[in-house]
Design a protein around this nucleic acid. Structure first.
Lengths: 217, 217
DNA sequence: TTAAATATTTAGACAAAACTAAATAATCTT
DNA sequence: AAGATTATTTAGTTTTGTCTAAATATTTAA
Protein backbone atom coordinates (compact mmCIF):
# COMPACT_ATOMS: atom_id res chain seq x y z
CA UNK A 1 0.00 0.00 0.00
CA UNK A 2 1.34 3.38 -1.02
CA UNK A 3 0.90 6.53 1.00
CA UNK A 4 -1.83 7.78 -1.33
CA UNK A 5 -3.71 4.48 -1.18
CA UNK A 6 -3.55 4.42 2.61
CA UNK A 7 -4.92 7.93 2.81
CA UNK A 8 -7.88 6.95 0.65
CA UNK A 9 -8.59 3.89 2.79
CA UNK A 10 -8.49 6.03 5.90
CA UNK A 11 -10.83 8.59 4.37
CA UNK A 12 -13.31 5.90 3.30
CA UNK A 13 -13.10 4.43 6.79
CA UNK A 14 -13.94 7.77 8.41
CA UNK A 15 -16.81 8.45 6.01
CA UNK A 16 -18.27 4.97 6.57
CA UNK A 17 -18.22 5.61 10.31
CA UNK A 18 -20.06 8.87 9.88
CA UNK A 19 -23.00 7.78 7.83
CA UNK A 20 -23.05 3.98 7.53
CA UNK A 21 -24.13 3.86 3.90
CA UNK A 22 -21.99 3.75 0.76
CA UNK A 23 -19.35 6.42 0.33
CA UNK A 24 -19.93 8.62 -2.71
CA UNK A 25 -17.20 9.76 -5.05
CA UNK A 26 -17.96 13.37 -4.27
CA UNK A 27 -17.87 12.93 -0.51
CA UNK A 28 -14.52 11.26 -0.87
CA UNK A 29 -13.24 14.03 -3.15
CA UNK A 30 -14.31 16.58 -0.53
CA UNK A 31 -12.65 14.62 2.29
CA UNK A 32 -9.43 14.17 0.32
CA UNK A 33 -9.38 17.74 -0.98
CA UNK A 34 -9.13 16.51 -4.53
CA UNK A 35 -11.15 16.10 -7.71
CA UNK A 36 -13.88 13.52 -8.28
CA UNK A 37 -12.08 12.19 -11.33
CA UNK A 38 -8.97 11.50 -9.29
CA UNK A 39 -11.12 9.66 -6.78
CA UNK A 40 -12.61 7.47 -9.49
CA UNK A 41 -9.10 6.60 -10.68
CA UNK A 42 -7.91 5.65 -7.24
CA UNK A 43 -11.04 3.73 -6.33
CA UNK A 44 -10.60 1.57 -9.40
CA UNK A 45 -7.08 0.82 -8.34
CA UNK A 46 -8.16 -0.06 -4.82
CA UNK A 47 -10.91 -2.26 -6.22
CA UNK A 48 -8.30 -4.09 -8.37
CA UNK A 49 -6.41 -4.80 -5.18
CA UNK A 50 -9.55 -6.00 -3.43
CA UNK A 51 -9.32 -3.31 -0.80
CA UNK A 52 -12.75 -1.87 -1.63
CA UNK A 53 -15.80 -3.02 -3.45
CA UNK A 54 -16.97 -0.55 -6.01
CA UNK A 55 -19.96 -0.31 -8.29
CA UNK A 56 -19.83 2.62 -10.72
CA UNK A 57 -22.27 5.39 -9.80
CA UNK A 58 -22.97 3.72 -6.46
CA UNK A 59 -19.92 4.51 -4.38
CA UNK A 60 -17.45 2.40 -2.46
CA UNK A 61 -17.28 0.31 0.68
CA UNK A 62 -14.20 -1.12 2.31
CA UNK A 63 -13.64 -4.83 1.86
CA UNK A 64 -12.63 -6.92 4.87
CA UNK A 65 -9.03 -6.54 3.75
CA UNK A 66 -9.34 -2.79 3.20
CA UNK A 67 -11.07 -2.33 6.53
CA UNK A 68 -8.32 -4.20 8.35
CA UNK A 69 -5.69 -2.07 6.68
CA UNK A 70 -7.51 1.17 7.48
CA UNK A 71 -7.78 0.14 11.12
CA UNK A 72 -4.03 -0.45 11.22
CA UNK A 73 -3.36 3.03 9.92
CA UNK A 74 -5.80 4.50 12.43
CA UNK A 75 -4.12 2.53 15.21
CA UNK A 76 -0.73 3.93 14.27
CA UNK A 77 -2.07 7.46 13.96
CA UNK A 78 -3.59 7.40 17.42
CA UNK A 79 -0.64 5.72 19.10
CA UNK A 80 1.72 8.34 17.70
CA UNK A 81 -0.62 11.06 18.95
CA UNK A 82 -0.36 9.66 22.45
CA UNK A 83 3.40 9.46 22.12
CA UNK A 84 3.71 13.05 20.97
CA UNK A 85 1.50 14.33 23.76
CA UNK A 86 2.71 12.24 26.65
CA UNK A 87 6.36 11.69 25.88
CA UNK A 88 7.34 14.70 23.81
CA UNK A 89 5.01 17.21 25.46
CA UNK A 90 3.24 18.34 22.33
CA UNK A 91 -0.08 20.05 22.95
CA UNK A 92 -3.23 18.32 21.77
CA UNK A 93 -3.71 20.73 18.90
CA UNK A 94 -0.24 19.91 17.51
CA UNK A 95 -0.32 16.13 17.44
CA UNK A 96 -2.62 15.52 14.48
CA UNK A 97 -0.46 16.86 11.65
CA UNK A 98 2.71 15.07 12.67
CA UNK A 99 0.76 11.84 13.28
CA UNK A 100 -0.52 12.12 9.70
CA UNK A 101 3.05 11.48 8.61
CA UNK A 102 4.01 8.93 11.25
CA UNK A 103 0.95 6.76 10.60
CA UNK A 104 2.49 5.59 7.32
CA UNK A 105 5.67 4.10 8.78
CA UNK A 106 5.68 0.42 7.93
CA UNK A 107 6.89 -1.76 10.79
CA UNK A 108 4.57 -3.92 12.79
CA UNK A 109 7.26 -4.32 15.38
CA UNK A 110 7.56 -0.56 15.76
CA UNK A 111 3.82 -0.18 16.22
CA UNK A 112 3.55 -2.92 18.80
CA UNK A 113 6.64 -1.81 20.73
CA UNK A 114 5.33 1.74 20.74
CA UNK A 115 1.98 0.49 22.05
CA UNK A 116 3.81 -1.31 24.85
CA UNK A 117 6.03 1.71 25.58
CA UNK A 118 2.91 3.84 26.01
CA UNK A 119 1.39 1.18 28.27
CA UNK A 120 -1.38 0.15 25.86
CA UNK A 121 -3.45 3.33 25.85
CA UNK A 122 -7.17 2.93 25.11
CA UNK A 123 -7.88 6.39 23.73
CA UNK A 124 -5.95 9.11 21.94
CA UNK A 125 -5.72 12.77 22.99
CA UNK A 126 -9.00 13.57 21.20
CA UNK A 127 -10.93 10.82 22.93
CA UNK A 128 -10.91 8.41 19.98
CA UNK A 129 -10.43 4.73 20.75
CA UNK A 130 -7.12 3.05 19.84
CA UNK A 131 -7.42 -0.38 18.18
CA UNK A 132 -5.21 -3.06 19.71
CA UNK A 133 -2.84 -5.15 17.62
CA UNK A 134 -5.72 -7.38 16.52
CA UNK A 135 -7.80 -4.41 15.42
CA UNK A 136 -10.22 -4.53 18.34
CA UNK A 137 -11.24 -1.46 20.28
CA UNK A 138 -13.90 -0.37 22.73
CA UNK A 139 -16.57 1.86 21.30
CA UNK A 140 -17.04 4.88 23.46
CA UNK A 141 -20.66 5.91 23.88
CA UNK A 142 -20.93 9.59 23.43
CA UNK A 143 -23.47 12.28 22.69
CA UNK A 144 -22.84 15.45 20.75
CA UNK A 145 -23.35 18.61 22.82
CA UNK A 146 -26.11 19.53 20.34
CA UNK A 147 -28.03 16.47 21.53
CA UNK A 148 -27.45 17.02 25.24
CA UNK A 149 -30.38 17.81 27.51
CA UNK A 150 -30.91 21.03 29.37
CA UNK A 151 -30.30 20.72 33.07
CA UNK A 152 -28.19 17.57 32.92
CA UNK A 153 -24.51 17.25 33.76
CA UNK A 154 -22.02 15.73 31.29
CA UNK A 155 -18.33 15.09 31.03
CA UNK A 156 -16.39 15.82 27.85
CA UNK A 157 -15.04 12.58 26.35
CA UNK A 158 -13.94 13.60 22.89
CA UNK A 159 -13.98 15.94 19.93
CA UNK A 160 -15.16 15.38 16.40
CA UNK A 161 -13.01 17.97 14.66
CA UNK A 162 -9.37 17.65 15.66
CA UNK A 163 -8.17 20.68 13.73
CA UNK A 164 -5.69 22.90 15.43
CA UNK A 165 -8.05 25.90 15.33
CA UNK A 166 -10.86 24.10 17.11
CA UNK A 167 -8.58 22.62 19.76
CA UNK A 168 -6.97 25.99 20.41
CA UNK A 169 -10.45 27.46 20.88
CA UNK A 170 -11.18 24.79 23.48
CA UNK A 171 -7.85 25.42 25.22
CA UNK A 172 -8.55 29.13 25.34
CA UNK A 173 -11.89 28.38 26.97
CA UNK A 174 -10.46 25.80 29.34
CA UNK A 175 -12.41 22.90 27.90
CA UNK A 176 -10.65 19.57 27.62
CA UNK A 177 -11.23 15.84 27.96
CA UNK A 178 -12.67 15.30 31.42
CA UNK A 179 -14.24 18.72 31.75
CA UNK A 180 -17.56 18.36 33.59
CA UNK A 181 -20.28 20.72 32.48
CA UNK A 182 -23.96 21.43 33.07
CA UNK A 183 -26.26 22.35 30.20
CA UNK A 184 -27.84 25.64 31.24
CA UNK A 185 -29.75 26.61 28.12
CA UNK A 186 -30.21 25.51 24.52
CA UNK A 187 -31.12 28.43 22.30
CA UNK A 188 -33.52 27.29 19.54
CA UNK A 189 -32.90 30.38 17.40
CA UNK A 190 -29.27 29.63 16.48
CA UNK A 191 -28.74 26.29 18.22
CA UNK A 192 -26.10 27.80 20.49
CA UNK A 193 -25.74 26.27 23.94
CA UNK A 194 -25.03 27.89 27.29
CA UNK A 195 -22.97 25.62 29.52
CA UNK A 196 -21.50 26.03 32.98
CA UNK A 197 -18.28 24.54 34.30
CA UNK A 198 -15.73 25.56 36.92
CA UNK A 199 -18.35 28.08 38.09
CA UNK A 200 -18.23 29.99 34.80
CA UNK A 201 -20.94 30.21 32.18
CA UNK A 202 -20.07 30.04 28.51
CA UNK A 203 -22.14 30.21 25.35
CA UNK A 204 -20.86 28.08 22.52
CA UNK A 205 -22.00 28.18 18.91
CA UNK A 206 -23.76 25.30 17.16
CA UNK A 207 -20.55 24.60 15.29
CA UNK A 208 -18.65 24.13 18.52
CA UNK A 209 -21.48 22.12 20.09
CA UNK A 210 -21.60 19.74 17.13
CA UNK A 211 -17.92 18.94 17.58
CA UNK A 212 -17.92 18.27 21.31
CA UNK A 213 -18.65 14.74 22.51
CA UNK A 214 -20.08 14.21 25.97
CA UNK A 215 -21.08 11.38 28.25
CA UNK A 216 -23.66 11.58 31.02
CA UNK A 217 -22.04 11.61 34.42
CA UNK B 1 12.36 18.02 -0.75
CA UNK B 2 10.75 14.76 -1.72
CA UNK B 3 11.69 11.42 -0.24
CA UNK B 4 13.67 10.48 -3.35
CA UNK B 5 15.55 13.78 -3.35
CA UNK B 6 16.44 13.42 0.31
CA UNK B 7 17.76 9.93 -0.28
CA UNK B 8 20.02 11.21 -3.02
CA UNK B 9 21.35 14.01 -0.82
CA UNK B 10 22.07 11.54 1.94
CA UNK B 11 23.88 9.20 -0.46
CA UNK B 12 26.00 12.05 -1.84
CA UNK B 13 26.76 13.10 1.71
CA UNK B 14 27.97 9.62 2.65
CA UNK B 15 30.06 9.27 -0.50
CA UNK B 16 31.67 12.68 0.03
CA UNK B 17 32.63 11.64 3.54
CA UNK B 18 34.25 8.48 2.26
CA UNK B 19 36.52 9.87 -0.40
CA UNK B 20 36.54 13.68 -0.22
CA UNK B 21 36.57 14.24 -3.98
CA UNK B 22 33.68 14.66 -6.40
CA UNK B 23 31.00 11.99 -6.41
CA UNK B 24 30.71 10.17 -9.73
CA UNK B 25 27.43 9.26 -11.36
CA UNK B 26 28.35 5.59 -11.26
CA UNK B 27 29.29 5.61 -7.58
CA UNK B 28 25.97 7.23 -6.81
CA UNK B 29 24.10 4.71 -8.95
CA UNK B 30 25.81 1.90 -7.03
CA UNK B 31 25.00 3.51 -3.66
CA UNK B 32 21.37 4.12 -4.62
CA UNK B 33 20.93 0.71 -6.26
CA UNK B 34 19.71 2.33 -9.43
CA UNK B 35 20.82 3.12 -12.98
CA UNK B 36 23.32 5.80 -13.96
CA UNK B 37 20.76 7.43 -16.23
CA UNK B 38 18.33 7.81 -13.36
CA UNK B 39 21.10 9.41 -11.35
CA UNK B 40 21.81 11.94 -14.08
CA UNK B 41 18.11 12.85 -14.16
CA UNK B 42 17.92 13.41 -10.43
CA UNK B 43 21.23 15.26 -10.21
CA UNK B 44 19.99 17.75 -12.76
CA UNK B 45 16.89 18.30 -10.71
CA UNK B 46 18.90 18.80 -7.53
CA UNK B 47 21.21 21.22 -9.37
CA UNK B 48 18.14 23.21 -10.49
CA UNK B 49 17.18 23.51 -6.86
CA UNK B 50 20.71 24.56 -5.89
CA UNK B 51 21.16 21.58 -3.63
CA UNK B 52 24.22 20.32 -5.51
CA UNK B 53 26.69 21.74 -7.96
CA UNK B 54 27.05 19.60 -11.01
CA UNK B 55 29.32 19.70 -14.03
CA UNK B 56 28.50 17.06 -16.66
CA UNK B 57 31.04 14.24 -16.75
CA UNK B 58 32.66 15.52 -13.57
CA UNK B 59 30.32 14.44 -10.84
CA UNK B 60 28.45 16.26 -8.08
CA UNK B 61 29.17 17.97 -4.79
CA UNK B 62 26.67 19.15 -2.22
CA UNK B 63 26.07 22.87 -2.06
CA UNK B 64 25.94 24.57 1.32
CA UNK B 65 22.16 24.26 1.18
CA UNK B 66 22.28 20.60 0.15
CA UNK B 67 24.83 19.80 2.80
CA UNK B 68 22.72 21.39 5.52
CA UNK B 69 19.71 19.42 4.39
CA UNK B 70 21.62 16.15 4.29
CA UNK B 71 22.89 16.76 7.82
CA UNK B 72 19.32 17.27 8.99
CA UNK B 73 18.27 13.95 7.54
CA UNK B 74 21.27 12.23 9.11
CA UNK B 75 20.45 13.85 12.44
CA UNK B 76 16.90 12.50 12.31
CA UNK B 77 18.06 9.05 11.25
CA UNK B 78 20.47 8.73 14.14
CA UNK B 79 18.12 10.16 16.74
CA UNK B 80 15.42 7.68 15.74
CA UNK B 81 17.95 4.87 15.98
CA UNK B 82 18.71 5.85 19.56
CA UNK B 83 14.99 6.03 20.29
CA UNK B 84 14.33 2.58 18.87
CA UNK B 85 17.19 1.03 20.78
CA UNK B 86 16.87 2.77 24.11
CA UNK B 87 13.14 3.33 24.44
CA UNK B 88 11.59 0.56 22.39
CA UNK B 89 14.25 -2.08 23.03
CA UNK B 90 15.07 -2.81 19.41
CA UNK B 91 18.41 -4.53 18.89
CA UNK B 92 21.14 -2.60 17.08
CA UNK B 93 20.75 -4.67 13.93
CA UNK B 94 17.06 -3.75 13.66
CA UNK B 95 17.18 0.02 14.02
CA UNK B 96 18.58 1.00 10.64
CA UNK B 97 15.71 -0.03 8.37
CA UNK B 98 12.98 1.59 10.42
CA UNK B 99 15.08 4.74 10.85
CA UNK B 100 15.33 4.91 7.04
CA UNK B 101 11.61 5.61 7.06
CA UNK B 102 11.44 7.81 10.13
CA UNK B 103 14.26 10.09 8.93
CA UNK B 104 11.90 11.61 6.36
CA UNK B 105 9.27 12.87 8.78
CA UNK B 106 9.08 16.62 8.41
CA UNK B 107 8.73 18.42 11.72
CA UNK B 108 11.55 20.39 13.24
CA UNK B 109 9.67 20.44 16.51
CA UNK B 110 9.43 16.65 16.52
CA UNK B 111 13.14 16.28 15.89
CA UNK B 112 14.15 18.72 18.59
CA UNK B 113 11.70 17.33 21.15
CA UNK B 114 12.90 13.82 20.40
CA UNK B 115 16.49 14.97 20.89
CA UNK B 116 15.53 16.41 24.26
CA UNK B 117 13.55 13.30 25.23
CA UNK B 118 16.63 11.18 24.53
CA UNK B 119 18.75 13.59 26.58
CA UNK B 120 20.76 14.92 23.63
CA UNK B 121 22.70 11.80 22.68
CA UNK B 122 26.07 12.37 20.99
CA UNK B 123 26.34 9.08 19.10
CA UNK B 124 23.95 6.56 17.59
CA UNK B 125 23.95 2.79 18.24
CA UNK B 126 26.59 2.26 15.55
CA UNK B 127 28.97 4.82 16.98
CA UNK B 128 28.18 7.55 14.46
CA UNK B 129 27.98 11.13 15.76
CA UNK B 130 24.59 12.85 15.98
CA UNK B 131 24.46 16.45 14.71
CA UNK B 132 22.81 18.91 17.10
CA UNK B 133 19.99 21.19 15.97
CA UNK B 134 22.49 23.57 14.40
CA UNK B 135 24.14 20.78 12.44
CA UNK B 136 27.27 20.62 14.60
CA UNK B 137 28.74 17.35 15.80
CA UNK B 138 31.94 16.03 17.29
CA UNK B 139 34.09 14.02 14.93
CA UNK B 140 35.08 10.76 16.50
CA UNK B 141 38.65 9.76 15.78
CA UNK B 142 38.73 6.17 14.85
CA UNK B 143 40.91 3.61 13.10
CA UNK B 144 39.73 0.70 11.05
CA UNK B 145 40.73 -2.68 12.47
CA UNK B 146 42.67 -3.23 9.23
CA UNK B 147 44.90 -0.30 10.20
CA UNK B 148 45.34 -1.31 13.84
CA UNK B 149 48.80 -2.31 15.07
CA UNK B 150 49.74 -5.73 16.32
CA UNK B 151 50.22 -5.88 20.04
CA UNK B 152 48.19 -2.77 20.88
CA UNK B 153 44.88 -2.62 22.74
CA UNK B 154 41.83 -0.86 21.27
CA UNK B 155 38.21 -0.26 22.13
CA UNK B 156 35.45 -0.63 19.55
CA UNK B 157 33.81 2.75 18.88
CA UNK B 158 31.79 2.11 15.76
CA UNK B 159 30.97 0.15 12.65
CA UNK B 160 31.15 1.17 9.03
CA UNK B 161 28.56 -1.24 7.64
CA UNK B 162 25.34 -1.12 9.64
CA UNK B 163 23.61 -3.91 7.76
CA UNK B 164 21.64 -6.37 9.80
CA UNK B 165 23.84 -9.28 8.69
CA UNK B 166 27.06 -7.66 9.82
CA UNK B 167 25.63 -6.56 13.16
CA UNK B 168 24.21 -10.01 13.80
CA UNK B 169 27.66 -11.45 13.11
CA UNK B 170 29.10 -9.09 15.71
CA UNK B 171 26.38 -10.00 18.21
CA UNK B 172 27.01 -13.71 17.68
CA UNK B 173 30.68 -13.11 18.40
CA UNK B 174 30.01 -10.83 21.37
CA UNK B 175 31.54 -7.75 19.82
CA UNK B 176 29.81 -4.43 20.45
CA UNK B 177 30.53 -0.77 21.06
CA UNK B 178 32.88 -0.61 24.02
CA UNK B 179 34.43 -4.03 23.49
CA UNK B 180 38.12 -3.82 24.38
CA UNK B 181 40.41 -6.00 22.29
CA UNK B 182 44.08 -6.69 21.73
CA UNK B 183 45.50 -7.23 18.23
CA UNK B 184 47.26 -10.59 18.36
CA UNK B 185 48.21 -11.11 14.75
CA UNK B 186 47.65 -9.61 11.34
CA UNK B 187 47.86 -12.22 8.61
CA UNK B 188 49.40 -10.69 5.46
CA UNK B 189 48.17 -13.49 3.21
CA UNK B 190 44.46 -12.73 3.42
CA UNK B 191 44.48 -9.63 5.66
CA UNK B 192 42.56 -11.46 8.37
CA UNK B 193 43.19 -10.36 11.93
CA UNK B 194 43.40 -12.37 15.13
CA UNK B 195 42.09 -10.45 18.11
CA UNK B 196 41.63 -11.29 21.76
CA UNK B 197 38.94 -10.02 24.08
CA UNK B 198 37.17 -11.40 27.15
CA UNK B 199 39.96 -14.00 27.25
CA UNK B 200 38.92 -15.49 23.92
CA UNK B 201 40.80 -15.34 20.65
CA UNK B 202 38.96 -14.76 17.40
CA UNK B 203 40.07 -14.51 13.80
CA UNK B 204 38.09 -12.07 11.72
CA UNK B 205 38.19 -11.71 7.93
CA UNK B 206 39.45 -8.62 6.14
CA UNK B 207 35.84 -7.76 5.33
CA UNK B 208 34.91 -7.71 9.00
CA UNK B 209 38.11 -5.87 9.97
CA UNK B 210 37.45 -3.12 7.41
CA UNK B 211 34.05 -2.46 8.94
CA UNK B 212 35.07 -2.25 12.58
CA UNK B 213 36.19 1.11 13.95
CA UNK B 214 38.52 1.25 16.93
CA UNK B 215 40.16 3.80 19.17
CA UNK B 216 43.40 3.33 21.06
CA UNK B 217 42.77 2.85 24.73
C1' DT C 1 -42.33 12.66 -17.38
C1' DT C 2 -39.41 15.49 -19.51
C1' DA C 3 -36.00 19.21 -18.73
C1' DA C 4 -32.58 20.97 -15.76
C1' DA C 5 -29.29 20.29 -12.38
C1' DT C 6 -26.02 17.44 -10.25
C1' DA C 7 -22.94 13.51 -9.78
C1' DT C 8 -19.88 10.41 -11.85
C1' DT C 9 -16.99 8.53 -15.20
C1' DT C 10 -14.01 8.61 -19.38
C1' DA C 11 -10.44 10.44 -22.23
C1' DG C 12 -6.40 12.71 -22.70
C1' DA C 13 -2.37 15.28 -20.42
C1' DC C 14 1.12 16.15 -17.09
C1' DA C 15 4.91 15.79 -13.50
C1' DA C 16 7.93 12.80 -10.85
C1' DA C 17 11.01 9.20 -10.80
C1' DA C 18 12.37 5.41 -12.70
C1' DC C 19 13.89 2.42 -16.86
C1' DT C 20 16.21 0.79 -21.65
C1' DA C 21 18.74 1.65 -25.55
C1' DA C 22 21.46 4.62 -28.12
C1' DA C 23 24.78 8.35 -28.41
C1' DT C 24 28.66 10.78 -26.83
C1' DA C 25 32.62 11.87 -23.93
C1' DA C 26 36.63 10.44 -21.27
C1' DT C 27 40.16 7.34 -20.25
C1' DC C 28 43.17 3.53 -20.99
C1' DT C 29 46.12 0.63 -24.07
C1' DT C 30 49.52 -0.24 -26.92
C1' DA D 1 47.66 9.07 -31.24
C1' DA D 2 44.19 5.75 -32.70
C1' DG D 3 41.29 2.31 -31.19
C1' DA D 4 39.06 0.06 -27.44
C1' DT D 5 36.91 0.32 -23.19
C1' DT D 6 34.40 2.54 -19.76
C1' DA D 7 31.60 6.30 -17.93
C1' DT D 8 28.07 9.45 -18.66
C1' DT D 9 24.40 11.62 -20.86
C1' DT D 10 20.34 11.88 -24.02
C1' DA D 11 16.08 10.31 -25.95
C1' DG D 12 12.17 7.99 -25.52
C1' DT D 13 8.99 4.95 -22.33
C1' DT D 14 6.63 3.55 -18.14
C1' DT D 15 4.06 4.00 -13.76
C1' DT D 16 1.71 6.57 -10.21
C1' DG D 17 -1.24 9.93 -8.97
C1' DT D 18 -3.01 13.89 -10.30
C1' DC D 19 -5.58 17.27 -13.41
C1' DT D 20 -9.13 19.43 -17.04
C1' DA D 21 -12.64 18.95 -20.20
C1' DA D 22 -16.02 16.27 -22.20
C1' DA D 23 -19.37 12.63 -21.96
C1' DT D 24 -22.72 10.04 -19.56
C1' DA D 25 -25.70 8.73 -15.82
C1' DT D 26 -28.73 9.97 -12.01
C1' DT D 27 -31.68 12.81 -9.46
C1' DT D 28 -34.69 16.69 -8.89
C1' DA D 29 -38.29 19.70 -10.10
C1' DA D 30 -41.80 21.67 -12.86
Amino acid sequence: MTLAEENYLKAIYHLENQSSNEVSTNALAEEMQTKASSVTDMIKKLAEKNMVSYIPYQGVTLSKKGHAHAVKVVRKHRLWEVFLLEKLNFSWDEVHDVAEQLEHIKSEKLTDKLDEFLDFPKVDPHGDPIPDKYGNFETIDKTSLTDAQEGLVYVCVGVHDSSSDFLKYLDANHIGLGTTMKIIHKEPFDNSVKIKFDDVELVVSENVAKNLFLKTV
